[in-house]
Each structure stands twice: as structure tokens, then as C-alpha cells.
């Protein structure tokens, strides 16, 4: 049995629940004020404590979760316009702009680059696997 009595345990649980709420509901229109209410904090207090722990404000964190999920969806070949709304953005322009700022390239280029990489991996897997491992696995041609 492990001891769970550390200082401010309920405080941490409330902040973590708010973070997990964002993780699972990022695709919806999230009102961060409601999250603060649900965590029993004032909005100001909630933002400050959230940032102390996650080094991002709840809004910045929500954006990063949406972009991360957009990247995963784009990798599966879903079109940019669909991904944009599916991860919770309301305008294609703001999605593309934020995506480019955070990822370093527009979503359309991200898809092309990922598909190219995927094709290379499928065609020549040994170009991506360390030689020592491939040799032990017997993947190298004698």
C-alpha cells in the first residue's frame, strides 16, 4: 500500500482533472471559464496554477493539443479542411496559420512530407533501422 498523503493532494487532482478534460474534449468548443469553475478556482487563480504546472496557459495548452491531434490525423491522410474542424478550430485560416507557426510548415506540406517518409520506410525499412539491430535480427543480406 503506498502512502498518498502529500501536501495539496486535492489541489493537484483538480488541476489534473482540468488538464485531462482538455485532453479528451479538445475537439469541442471549450469554455475555459467553465473549466475553472469545475475545478473550483477563480479564472485568474486557475490560469496561474495551470501555467505553473504545465508551463502553458490553459488556452495555449488547448491549442497545442489541437495541433498535436491535427498532426496525427493529417498523417492518416485526412484532408486539411476536415482535420481543421475535427480538432476544434472554427476557421481554416486560423488553423493553417497556427499550424505553420507551431509545426514550421503548412498542413498541406506536412501531409506530403509524411506520406513521402512513410513510402520510404515501406520501401527501404533498413534505411531507418540501425545496422546492429538489423544484423542481429538477420535482416541484412549476406
Amino acid at each position: 500500500m503506498i502512502n498518498e498523503q502529500y501536501p495539496k493532494i486535492y489541489f493537484y487532482r483538480r488541476i489534473v482533472q482540468a488538464k485531462l478534460f482538455i485532453d479528451t474534449h479538445y475537439s469541442l468548443k471549450i469554455d475555459l471559464e467553465n473549466i475553472a469553475d469545475e475545478a473550483y478556482f477563480s479564472k485568474f487563480h486557475f490560469i496561474r496554477e495551470f501555467k505553473n504546472i504545465y508551463r502553458k496557459t490553459p488556452h495555449q495548452y488547448l491549442i497545442s493539443v489541437r495541433i498535436e491531434n491535427a498532426m496525427e490525423s493529417l498523417k492518416t491522410g485526412i484532408p486539411v479542411s476536415e482535420v481543421c474542424y475535427a480538432v476544434g478550430f472554427e476557421s481554416l485560416g486560423s488553423f493553417s496559420g497556427l499550424f505553420k507557426r507551431i509545426v514550421g510548415m503548412p498542413p498541406s506540406l506536412y501531409i506530403i512530407q509524411h506520406q513521402k517518409l512513410k513510402a520510404q520506410m515501406a520501401e527501404s525499412p533498413l534505411d531507418f533501422i540501425p545496422g546492429c539491430f538489423a544484423e542481429k535480427k538477420g535482416l541484412l543480406k549476406k
Partner: peptide, 10 residues
Amino acid sequence: CNDIFATYEE
């Protein structure tokens, strides 16, 4: 991690 208690709870 940056915050052990938050990471532990999560």
C-alpha cells in the same frame, strides 16, 4: 518532470 505531484496524479 516539472511537477511530480501533478504528473503522479495524471
